[in-house]
Amino acid sequence: MNINGRGFHLLVLVSICMLLADWLPEHFKLWFVSETGHVGHGQTMNWLIIVLLFGRWKHARSLALFVNGLQFLFGALILFTSWKWGGPWLGYSLTTLLHLVVLKVLNDSASVREFLEEKQLA
């Protein structure tokens, strides 16, 4: 495992974005819902995906793209409805941006692909 490579550093950025997207709803509830509202956000799936990415499981990148794509679409939908009919939008705009960064890096970075496929070549 080459921890000095660009792929590893980009994977750390992906992990930070995923964890931050999970952390924000827990600690800044009012950015997502009104005071009487409830925001539920499971953190287990992103932790599992991060472990699988660093473990270089063969399908981890595809799973991460799928899950973050769904989270991005859900955040964009909620952001659109909050903008159209009013409501808190700061939290959803931040998490949607974080998921977009994750999608962009995982989908477009050749160095991340190389890092994840190193194990299979050895």
Rank of each mutant, 00 (worst) to 15 (best):
V12I: 14
L63C: 08
L103P: 00
L106P: 02
M18T: 08
I16P: 03
W47C: 06
T95H: 04
G87K: 15
G37Y: 01
L94S: 07
S82K: 07
A64S: 12
L106Q: 05
L11E: 06
F54Q: 09
L103I: 07
G75P: 13
E118R: 13
V51G: 10
F28A: 15
L116Y: 01
Y92T: 01
W89R: 15
L10G: 04
N107P: 02
W23N: 14
G86R: 04
L116V: 11
L10N: 09
K104A: 14
R56M: 14
H27F: 13
F72C: 13
V33W: 00
I78K: 02
R113N: 04
E117H: 09
S62M: 09
A76G: 15
S15G: 09
G42Y: 07
L11S: 01
L65H: 06
R61M: 08
T44P: 05
A76P: 10
L73T: 14
R6M: 15
S34P: 07
D22M: 05
L97P: 11
H38R: 12
T44S: 08
K84H: 08
I78Y: 01
F32E: 02
L100I: 02
L10H: 00
I16R: 00
P88Y: 01
N107Y: 09
K119L: 05
L98P: 00
E117N: 09
F54T: 14
F72N: 11
A122C: 12
L79G: 12
V105T: 12
K104N: 09
L30E: 12
H99T: 08
F115H: 01
Q120E: 12
N4W: 09
K119H: 12
L103F: 01
A60T: 08
V112S: 05
F28W: 01
L116E: 02
W47K: 08
F80S: 10
A60V: 06
F32S: 09
K119R: 15
G91T: 13
L106I: 04
R113E: 04
A21M: 01
L116Q: 03
G37W: 02
T81A: 06
A21T: 11
Q71N: 15
K58Q: 04
N4H: 11
